[in-house]
Design a protein around this nucleic acid. Structure first.
Lengths: 125, 125
DNA sequence: TTGGATATACGAAACTCTTCGTATATTTAC
DNA sequence: GTAAATATACGAAGAGTTTCGTATATCCAA
């Protein structure tokens, strides 16, 4: 099972596909252009490259192709988090968690959610 | 305050400097070469580029320059984690934590450490 | 039916990253 | 003192990323 390694632009496009579901190039471009000033053919090119890389699949049965992410968001997040932990934290998920929680203030309800997960993890063991 | 954006190779060199302290190019290359087959001048070039980017500082008073990381490990980790959370998790540190803990098994003592941090965070608020 | 809007494909320029070779200076060792 | 070892600097090739322009096909509307 190969792990994905999207560029920053590719990740942005994947996020749009994950959030909105299947999209045409035009739809992705509209979303993209609400943030950044980037041409239509630039997005088209990105998505063509992503297609050759296997990051997206597309339905070509109509003139206007419809794209979808070829990886689920959950799997992609797993792979990217794993790599991030390996690269920066020598494989220690705990160090990442400490750093993340130390720098961002989480609401009490979020903290409760994490505490719940901690409990589940301990019980499962 | 500008945020750093090291490439993968640059990050590996920073990690060596953080772990071993100040180093010559030769020392970094030795460490690097224990993993990967890469030439001396390649590492030299990386470190020269990192110097122009401000990622490292160097003492040039001797012929053999001595390099040090220009940014502390803690600050670098903060910045990189923040960017990672922004790029992949829409700014939610909690989502990152859930994903990280869900995929990696942490020991009980590690879970206890995280629980302690959670308590501190709640009390501090 | 013809012209404008909309699609894809392709090519290429500008940048960055990775990788080394080579030129040159300095130190060391015989 | 000269040759080998060790440094830095520089240039450049090759790959990948970002960005569009242009060519070409297709659909729709007057």
């Amino acid at each position: 099972m190969k792990t994905i390694k999207p560029t920053e632009s590719e990740l942005e496009i994947l996020k749009i596909l994950w959030e909105r579901g299947d999209c045409t190039v035009r739809q992705v471009h509209e979303q993209f252009a609400s943030d950044k000033d980037v041409g239509y053919t630039t997005i088209l090119k990105f998505m063509q490259i992503m297609h050759t890389k296997g990051l997206v699949a597309r339905d070509e049965s109509n003139k206007t192709h419809v794209y979808r992410a070829a990886v689920s968001r959950d799997v992609a997040e797993q792979q990217l988090v794993n790599k991030f932990i390996k690269d920066l934290f020598d494989g220690s998920a705990t160090r990442l968690v400490m750093q993340a929680l130390g720098n961002h203030r989480a609401s009490n309800s979020e903290l409760a959610k994490i505490r719940q997960l901690l409990n589940d993890l301990e019980n499962k063991k």
